[in-house]
Each structure stands twice: as structure tokens, then as C-alpha cells.
């Protein structure tokens, strides 16, 4: 990974902060000048502007704008090495991450269609392959756990879930 900052005289001390700050700045501008006026309804007559449904979102928007600018300035001027160490790690293979993302999509996209048990089995198998789990009998757990956890929710805790397709 490219290391932008140093304790010396580089232009940007913490690029993560600058990028996050710029994104937040963009979001706060979007919030203030587009989202609040267009997506928050306001009654025609208002005795006190502080009672308005737009008042707090506007305040939050302006404060976000100020703090995102401060975050950009912080990123330009200050390198927080202690904090940065927690952010940096050695990345694993992309396929592993992609399979994890696929399992999330299986859950979110197919949960109601396939039911909790089958979508659970499918997603768990994908995650076992992603790691990859090399002990063959562990793959049996991909069937046992979704069935067991579904039963725990529906049978014991009385929390309704779609168990099977239809």
C-alpha cells in the first residue's frame, strides 16, 4: 500500500482523513442544498423556526460541513500514526472477499425466496469455500447450523422466519 505521509514535509499527512473529509463535505452540501429542501416537508405556517422539521437536519448539516472542513485540515496538517496503525493490514486474496460479498447478496437477495434454511446453507457453504475450510466434515456443519439456528429462532424463541421456499 502506498504510504503518503511521513513526519517530514509531505503535502498531506493523512490522506484517509482528507478523502473522508472531502466526501463528508460533499455529503453535507448535498444535505443542506438538496436533500433538506426537497425531502423534508414543512408546514406553511410556523410560529418558531426551531419547531420546524427542517431545523435540526439543517443544524446537523451545517455542523457536518464545518467538521468535515476541520477533518480535511486535520488530514493535511496532522499525521496520527497511532490511529493509522489500526487501519493498515495485509490484504488477503480478492476472491475470498468477493465470495464473502456473494454470501451477503445470497442472504439479502434470496432469503425470502429460498427460506432461511436453504439460503443459510448456501451462504455458509460459500463462506467455507471462501476461507477455505479444508476439513471435509466441517462442510456438514453448513447444513446442521442453518437448520439448527432457524429452529432456535422459530421453535424455541418464537421469532418468525420464512423456513422454506413458499
Amino acid at each position: 500500500m502506498t504510504k503518503f505521509h511521513s513526519t517530514g514535509g509531505t503535502l498531506i499527512k493523512d490522506p484517509w482523513d482528507v478523502v473522508a473529509g472531502v466526501m463528508l463535505l460533499g455529503f453535507s452540501l448535498l444535505l443542506l442544498f438538496y436533500l433538506v429542501p426537497n425531502y423534508i416537508g414543512q408546514p406553511p405556517i410556523m410560529q418558531n423556526p426551531m419547531m420546524s422539521p427542517r431545523w435540526l437536519p439543517n443544524i446537523v448539516g451545517w455542523l457536518l460541513l464545518v467538521f468535515s472542513v476541520l477533518m480535511i485540515i486535520q488530514g493535511v496538517l496532522i499525521a496520527d500514526d497511532a490511529e493509522d496503525n489500526g487501519r493498515r493490514f495485509e490484504r488477503g486474496p480478492l476472491l475470498r472477499f468477493a465470495l464473502m460479498a456473494l454470501s451477503l447478496i445470497v442472504y439479502a437477495g434470496l432469503f425470502e425466496m429460498l427460506g432461511a434454511v436453504i439460503s443459510g446453507i448456501l451462504a455458509t457453504l460459500i463462506l467455507f469455500i471462501a476461507h477455505p475450510v479444508r476439513t471435509w466434515w466441517v462442510y456438514g456443519l453448513a447444513i446442521v447450523f442453518p437448520a439448527g439456528v432457524t429452529l432456535l429462532f422459530t421453535g424455541i424463541m418464537n421469532v418468525p422466519l420464512p423456513m422454506w421456499p413458499f
Binding site: F111, E112, A116, T124, F128, V133, V159, P160
Partner: peptide
Amino acid sequence: KSILFPIVLMFCVYGAYAVNNDT
């Protein structure tokens, strides 16, 4: 963790769905 996290994810999904029975 390769066995634990798939189970944790299962609990996450089932738990979130159970709130309103909605994906």
C-alpha cells in the same frame, strides 16, 4: 473463526429479518 464467522453472519441476518419480517 472460519467456522465461527459464517454462524455469526447467520445470526446477523436472521436477527435483522426478525424485526419486521422484511428483507
